[in-house]
Nucleic acid binder design. Structure first.
Length: 489
RNA sequence: GGUAUCGUGGCCGAGUGGCUAGGCAGAGCUCUGCAAAAGCUCCUACAGCAGUUCGAAUCUGCUCGAUACCUCCA
């Protein structure tokens, strides 16, 4: 089916490599999921939509993919300082709620957003709180292997010791000496031996709500441990793909690799995939900068930077128009362009079943398919794939207008290709209100009346009907074979 | 300050040594009672300077500008 091999850019090697699963046809893919202490914003959504497309495409290619995406519900520290408050419990105190109530609410919110964006659920969605035992076991093992030390009820990873034997900076490509010598803000770190050391287990303060017993006293797991523990548990000590946002590279993923090597003597993933940031006016969209959009604000248009609302599929299409490793800037104009482009694509999709077939094809479907697969095989290049999809749109419209022709066999191939790419791989979906039978019947009556008016050259009446229907949200198009309508917003 | 990445036409955004990206917007045409839709045509750009090369938006160097990471963040 494909003419070229799938190539993926690997952050670890900084190169685009041919993808070879460790145990084909099985593929293990781990993606760092959200921390559920507030609403998921569009930047988060972009990452998960990007990985959704990868998941879909790998599956489409015939791989049996186990896609693991965690939910971080154990609460990480607020800052490097030990006084830092657990994010989940802080919000809980603010809102007078139980931490798990917060977690429950925002997990639900996250799932709802993912559903609206038409992302497929992961194969396994493990939570940090359900894997405390695994995290404690991993901490014990790292301690036993000599890469961690206990200090006043907490356990820290010894980065300097680790770095003497292994590359700590392989993923981030940073200079270790500089990291070590960057002594800015060394406050209140008496418990830690080294500046870069990070917590595997953190002793709970009396007021800390989320806590579990451990060999080192009551506490909670460190920032990076859950992903190491859960990826090992569900995908093995070595698996194919590990992904997440680019901002996770220097700290979270770097430490994750160190933990895995210190525990299992193996680097967890062969290929590391990182998605780029969504920006607003050139600045990274983030919770802490306060410039983030919530999906609902985008859908409703209820945001100071927006002129109007945009549907989830418009936004998904918009995101697919940029490559996942490029930053993508949010603006009204760009979203409006995406809205129209997406509508044109969907319109063409609807025309396919009714295309008239001929004895000969004047269009080249095989070439089209080849181009699309080449684009996707080139590090999931969805913008190029979409460009070819729009060649298909022109092709379909021309056939529909009788300017090009297609054989029954080619039409079958085109239909299969388009459906698989647009709906299956890119995960787009028709989202306009479905024209139901009752409305169809009603509209047929109106069309009949309008046709009668037109036959009598009573264009005043026919135009009035068309204009009023448009105001009511029904757009009328007069075609050769009668009128048709689409429901607009 | 350190380390990276990036700077493409009105907007968004691919590409990356020679060949049209694509979407949206704009102009013209065809079709049409008029619209809409669709098709065709046009608008042909790569921050600046210098260099390598037969040839550079694409490689190298410098300059300017922007962003990210170094601190929780997808």
């Amino acid at each position: 089916m494909t003419h070229t091999a799938l190539k993926i850019y690997n952050t670890l090697s900084r190169q685009t490599e041919t993808f070879k699963p460790i145990h084909a046809p099985f593929v293990g893919m781990y993606v760092c999921g959200p921390t559920v202490y507030s609403n998921a914003h569009l930047g988060n959504a972009r990452t998960f939509i990007s990985f959704d497309v990868m998941f879909r495409y790998l599956t489409h290619l015939g791989y049996k993919v186990r896609y693991v995406r965690n939910i971080t519900d154990a609460g990480h520290l607020e800052s490097d300082a030990d006084e830092g408050e657990d994010k989940v419990s802080k919000k809980a105190r603010l809102e007078q709620l139980e931490p798990m109530e917060i977690v429950q609410r925002y997990t639900y919110d996250f799932h709802e957003v993912m559903r609206l964006f038409n992302t497929l659920p992961p194969s396994i969605e493990p939570t940090a709180t359900a894997h405390i035992i695994e995290q404690i076991e991993m901490t014990k093992k790292i301690l036993a292997n000599g890469y961690a030390y206990e200090s006043n009820g907490s356990v820290y990873f010894d980065v300097e010791k680790f770095a003497k034997e292994f590359s700590y900076t392989a993923l981030s490509n940073r200079n270790l000496e500089e990291l070590l010598n960057n002594t800015r803000e060394l406050d209140g770190q008496e418990e830690k031996k080294g500046r870069l050391d990070f917590a595997l287990w953190i002793k709970a303060k009396p007021e800390h709500i989320m806590r579990w017993p451990s060999p080192w006293g009551e506490g909670f797991p460190g920032w990076h441990l859950e992903c190491s523990a859960m990826s090992s548990k569900y995908l093995g000590e070595e698996f194919d793909i590990h992904g997440g946002g680019m901002d996770l590279v220097p700290t979270h993923h770097t430490n994750e690799i160190a933990q895995n090597i210190a525990c299992h003597h193996k680097s967890p993933a062969r290929v590391w995939i990182h998605t780029n940031m969504l920006t607003v006016n050139g600045q990274k969209m983030s919770k802490s900068l306060g410039n983030s959009f919530l999906p609902n604000e985008l859908f409703s248009g209820n945001h100071k930077l927006l002129d109007k609302g945009y549907s989830p599929m418009t936004v998904r299409f918009f995101m697919l128009q940029a490559h996942y490793r490029s930053t993508l800037d949010f603006s009204n104009e760009a979203l409006q362009a995406a809205e129209k482009g997406f509508a044109r694509l969907m319109n063409a999709m609807k025309l396919i079943p009714d295309l008239k077939v001929s004895k000969q094809s004047t269009v080249n479907c095989a070439e089209l398919g080849k181009n699309m697969y080449e684009a996707m095989n080139d590090d999931f290049n969805t913008p190029i794939a979409l460009a070819h999809l729009f060649e298909a749109v022109r092709m379909i419209n021309s056939i529909n207008d009788g300017k090009e022709s297609i054989t029954a066999a080619d039409k079958e191939e085109l239909s299969k290709l388009m459906n698989e790419m647009v709906f299956g791989v890119l995960g787009l979906a028709e989202e306009k209100a479905v024209n139901n039978d009752k409305i169809d019947g009603l509209m047929q009556l109106i069309f009949d009346m309008r046709s009668a008016a037109k036959a009598n050259k009573d264009f005043k009446t026919s135009d009035h009907i068309r204009d009023e229907l448009k105001r009511a949200g029904f757009e009328i198009k007069d075609g050769k074979d009668g009128a048709s309508y689409t429901i607009t917003n």
